[in-house]
Structures are given as C-alpha cells and as structure tokens.
C-alpha cells in the first residue's frame, strides 16, 4: 500500500488538517468547531528543528499510510528527494508514495497565526488565529483530500 505524505511549510497546520480529514479525525460534511481542530493530534505542535521529519498519523481505510511532513522553504527540493529515494528503493514512485502539497491552501490568518505561534512562541494568540483561518478555508481542504483519495485509488 501507498505512503501518502501531506506537506506544507512547518508540518503544523495545513498539512495536519488535511491529513486529519483524510484519516476521518475531522468531518468532510461540515466545518468543525474550534475545539475539534485544536485537539487534532500534532496540530500547532511541531517546532522548527523538526521540519523535515515525517509524522505518522495512521493508516486509512484502504491501507495507505498517512504522514505529514514540513519541508520549510524547500518543498520542491524535498519532494524531489523523496521521489528519488523511493525510486532507488523500488525502481518506481507510482503506487509507492504520493506527496500532497497543502501549502496552496494557506491564507493570511494561517500565515500570521503560524508565525505568531511557531516562530515567536505566542501560542495563545497564534493558535486561535490559525484555526480561524482553517475554518474559513475548510471546504478547500475537504476537496483536496477527496482528490487525493481518488488519485490514490487510481494508482496501481
């Protein structure tokens, strides 16, 4: 089965939410409450030094392993490295690994809140701002995850 890696800048907000929706920890049919998002495992937890370290969130219903990985400002280089590594192991990437870039879903509140919380440690102010941003863009996350699940099924 495949390894699905949701990636973003720090691996703390957008990728965590996308992976949580994939795993069924967050709903697909409605916008979750503030507390529901705040209590998602690893939400707003990763620090700068752990950027690049994959976080395992679980195995989905079809057996794909779901990970989250922050790649900092090097998403393109990091993604290419992952695909190269997998290619060296298996001779192919299709069906073995899928990297999903969730940074495109970031909006201004998530950016500001993430900076306040993760960079300057003002968690009490930053975290609620990120959640507000996530809720504003929630259905885009759901759409992304639905597309990922469809793609994952189509791969051998």
């Amino acid at each position: 089965m495949m390894k699905i890696i949701y990636s973003c800048y720090g691996g703390a907000h957008t990728s965590i939410v996308a992976a949580a929706i994939h795993m069924g920890l967050l709903p697909e049919d409605r916008i979750p409450s503030f507390n529901k998002i705040a209590t998602v495992p690893f939400y707003d937890k990763t620090n700068t030094k752990s950027i690049g370290t994959p976080i395992y969130l679980g195995t989905d219903l079809v057996g794909n392993e779901v990970y989250v990985m922050g790649m900092g400002a090097y998403r393109k280089e990091g993604s290419e490295l992952v695909y190269q590594f997998v290619n060296e192991l298996y001779g192919r990437c299709k069906g073995e690994v899928l990297i999903v870039n969730s940074i495109a879903l970031i909006n201004l509140p998530i950016r500001i809140g993430g900076f306040l919380s993760r960079k300057i440690n003002m968690v009490a102010i930053g975290k609620p701002i990120t959640i507000f941003g996530i809720q504003n863009k929630y259905y885009s996350f759901v759409e992304l995850v639905k597309n990922v699940k469809k793609t994952a099924i189509q791969q051998p």
């Binding site: 690049g52 994959p54 900092g72 997998v86 060296e88």
Partner: peptide
C-alpha cells in the same frame, strides 16, 4: 549502497528528511 548528494538546503532539514525516509521505508 554508496551515494553522493550535493545539497543547497538547510542541513538539519535535509538530515531530517533522509533519516525520516529511512524510518518510513524501513531502510
């Protein structure tokens, strides 16, 4: 297997990615 990798990103991110991949793929 011996590889070379010329890099231009922050070293700690590169190390985290490589060792992380090793853990994920049991390599």
């Amino acid at each position: 297997e011996v590889y070379l990798l010329k890099y231009n990103i922050k070293k700690y991110i590169l190390m985290n990615i490589i060792y992380g991949l090793g853990n994920i793929f049991n390599e």
